[in-house]
């Protein structure tokens, strides 16, 4: 069996060339044409962006709809989207546009935000590096996770779902190579990561492995 290679990553946000949106119509039109990196950033990379909130919703569009536009219906519909269920970002874009079009057809005027609260589209560059640390056997994993940075947790538990094998976190994928650890895999896969900050998620993963049972 191969060792688990602990990677780490850091993220740096950058502006996109997409103009800010002040209302839902503009949001819809910008999302229709923005680069996939922009979409990915606002849906998936939010846990790594410095912020002061642990918001109700994990994608920036839902948060903006709730806090700046005051459209709770739209926020709820956008907020439930799990971006990791979409292997193709174009499918995710289609789903978001479908929701926005539906909402625009329901309202009597185009919901807008105040000047100064526009939605700013951004994207990010992620730098990934090998920490040099290795986990050689499953019993070592909980302690190793407990020592990981937020970047490592993001890379191995969230970002990993977009890599092969798609939809699976790196820890589960590695544990699957060791017979007798099906319970751990199942426990990890049942963690609803949406409502955790990365440091909370690290603690939750450790707790899950410590209580989730393994042979």
């Amino acid at each position: 069996m191969e060792d688990f290679i602990i990677q780490d990553c850091t993220l740096l946000s950058r502006t996109s060339n997409v103009p800010p949106a002040i209302n839902l119509r503009e949001l819809r039109d910008r999302i229709a044409t923005c680069r996939q990196d922009v979409l990915y950033h606002h849906f998936c990379e939010t846990p790594l962006v410095p912020c002061f909130d642990n918001p109700d919703y994990r994608n920036d569009f839902a948060v903006w709809a709730l806090l700046q536009v005051g459209d709770r219906v739209l926020a709820e519909r956008l907020g439930i989207i799990n971006p990791y269920l979409y292997t193709d970002l174009e499918k995710l874009r289609e789903q978001v546009l479908e929701i926005l079009d539906e909402r625009l057809s329901e309202v009597h005027f185009v919901p807008s935000c105040l000047h100064g609260s526009e939605f700013f589209f951004s994207e990010a560059v992620t730098v990934v590096f090998d920490t040099g640390l290795r986990v050689t056997s499953p019993p070592e994993l909980p302690e190793a996770i407990g020592r990981m940075t937020n970047g490592s947790i993001y890379y191995h538990f969230l970002e990993s779902r977009r890599r092969e094998p798609v939809g699976v976190d790196d820890f589960s994928a590695w544990l699957a190579c060791f017979p007798g650890h099906e319970d751990w895999c199942q426990s990890l896969q049942s963690v609803d990561f949406s409502f955790f900050t990365l440091s909370e998620l690290r603690d939750e993963l450790v707790r899950t492995l410590q209580t989730g049972g393994a042979s």
């Binding site: 740096l12 990010a124 730098v127 990934v128 590096f129």
Partner: peptide, 14 residues
């Protein structure tokens, strides 16, 4: 690191 890598990609492995 990003500038040093000379890469344009959104994920850079160093």
């Amino acid at each position: 690191h990003i500038l040093n890598s000379q890469q344009e990609a959104s994920t850079i492995y160093i």
